[in-house]
Design a protein around this nucleic acid. Structure first.
Lengths: 206, 206
DNA sequence: ACGGTTCTCTACCAAATGGTAGACAATCTC
DNA sequence: GAGATTGTCTACCATTTGGTAGAGAACCGT
């Protein structure tokens, strides 16, 4: 005796609502710390409805990650296309693009922190999506360096450092409270700006 | 019928062995993903021996964190005392000091990533230990800036950014494999060096 | 020698977890 | 209107989890 009748439109939006809630919960508290029951309660459905849309918890995790990777890809690609031509300005535009969805939904970047604890099989799928993005950024950096518009350096290392910093910033603001800061002093936006100014200083051609 | 007789020396070293194994497991896989059974198996004792030395899992977590914080404090203080007088050199020495225990035991920095998921009550205790360290670094940076030996900036933001980067680097190397890098290309040591060179570029007096 | 302390163990337990089976209602197709 | 499809639910289950109870061995001080 299903109490909630089907929505008037043909397809239900339950899948999207599950993905959204799961993204937030997984991003803030981690895969293993969030149970299917908690996600279901957040969405407002029974746990078995989750398992109707996603065959297992690992499936749901994978879907959340692919979703996040796709969203990041879109905003980054858009930023690259529309950004100014000067490499440092373009770099700043991309950084801002990465942070923009996170300003509205900080949990998105929190997922980056979880990349080291993927369910088996999810890694390959994600690599397929993220690797082209990274490779593209790498070749772009290298080209600009050879043109003398950026200081010489190892593109892989630079990207890795930026990635690590963004993932680390995503552990905020909870972690920073522990060492004695408030969110007012250290905000996501301030940290993003500090990161870009660091990048400018480190990469400006000498 | 305890099969293993007591060690010849009076105090058993079980507590230390538990702390060491718990540090590695918690640091690599997170608090919630590691069960007491797994830690006990790693140490080679029964789970109930864990609960003899630590009243609960939260107690063990807190002990691990306090241990880590104390170790970090020691190496940082030592680096500050013995480091050269030039602020950028001293900064580099401190960064190296923070990474040194991690080179031998990467899981130690992984704990930083877990600071946002503390059991209730552990936060205050940790703040007591870490906050003085941060405050001291902050005032030191401010003094050097006023003396014109470092570029002007917000000390809190700089420290937060460095902290975020270190915590992010700690999510390596697993996470970086996902975006298509090998550990050979991006190592802990290389990232550390890149971080210090970024800091030098960003903080050198103009 | 003996009683207390220290330390480790086996045996359980209640709760939570991911997942299965299957009933049932609303809708679509014909 | 009949049957298939879609979507949600209740009921249940095996396993794992953090934690308790308590026995017993080795060692200590006296």
């Amino acid at each position: 005796m299903a109490r909630r009748p089907l929505a008037p439109n043909r397809r239900s939006d339950t899948r999207e609502r599950i993905l959204e809630s799961a993204t937030i919960l997984f991003g803030t508290r981690g895969f293993d710390s969030v149970s299917l029951d908690q996600i279901a309660a957040e969405v407002g459905v029974a746990k078995q409805s989750l398992l109707y849309w996603f065959a297992s918890k690992d499936d749901l995790i994978q879907a959340v990650l692919v979703n996040m990777a796709a969203e990041l890809t879109v905003v980054v690609e858009a930023a690259i296309r529309s950004a100014p031509d000067m490499p440092l300005d373009r770099l700043e535009a991309v950084i801002h693009a990465v942070f923009r969805p996170a300003v509205r939904r900080p949990a998105l970047l929190g997922l980056l922190r979880e990349l080291s604890r993927l369910p088996t099989g999810a890694a390959e799928h994600l690599t397929e999506i993220l690797n082209p993005l990274v490779t593209r950024a790498e070749t772009w950096l290298r080209t600009e360096m050879q043109a003398g518009r950026l200081r010489q350096g190892d593109p892989s290392l630079i990207i890795a450092l930026v990635y690590a910093t963004v993932a680390g910033i995503a552990t905020e603001p909870e972690a920073l409270r522990v060492v004695g800061w408030s969110q007012d002093v250290i905000g996501l936006r301030k940290l993003r700006n500090e990161l870009t100014s660091f990048l400018r200083a480190a990469l400006a051609p000498s």
